[in-house]
């Protein structure tokens, strides 16, 4: 049985913008991944619990409500605490480019903004995901 990339697509916080997250979930599934969509209103604890239980290779965080600098580093931190450093974290949404550096330094693998072709995102994940 071929190994499948397992991905969690999560919406942290109260943000209801899910068009992009759902679109990406669908497109990643079409690219052969097994995608768990968590739905809206996730706390960092919920996201990390899901990643742990699902043995996710990739965790995607989508944020369009200006809370990325609050939530993303918290998710990274909790993952570190659980020793899940090998899980690839990717994020996207409305995130000012000037915040990219901070987010990457805090442990995000990559950040993608509006207008990014989804193929670029899929390729990034496939190229950077861990082996199990």
């Amino acid at each position: 049985m071929a190994r499948k990339i397992k991905m969690i697509m999560a919406k942290p916080g109260l943000d209801g913008h899910d068009r992009g997250a759902k679109l990406l979930a669908r497109i990643c599934a079409e690219a052969g991944m097994e995608v768990v969509y968590t739905g809206l209103r996730q706390t960092p604890e919920m996201i990390v619990a899901a990643a742990e239980q699902e043995d996710a290779d990739v965790v995607g965080l989508s944020s369009l409500s200006g809370v990325h600098n609050y939530f993303f580093p918290r998710v990274v931190e909790l993952m570190k605490q659980k020793g899940m450093e090998d899980v690839l974290l990717v994020g996207g949404g409305i995130i000012p480019e000037e915040d990219y550096d901070f987010l990457k330094k805090s442990g995000m693998g990559a950040i993608f903004g509006p207008g990014t072709p989804t193929t670029e995102i899929v390729e990034f994940i496939q190229a950077n995901v861990r082996q199990r």
């Binding site: 916080g13 109260l14 200006g66 809370v67």
Partner: peptide, 10 residues
């Protein structure tokens, strides 16, 4: 607690 980080943001 669920408002943390969100206050006045959007």
């Amino acid at each position: 607690p669920l408002s943390m980080g969100e206050v006045g943001k959007v």
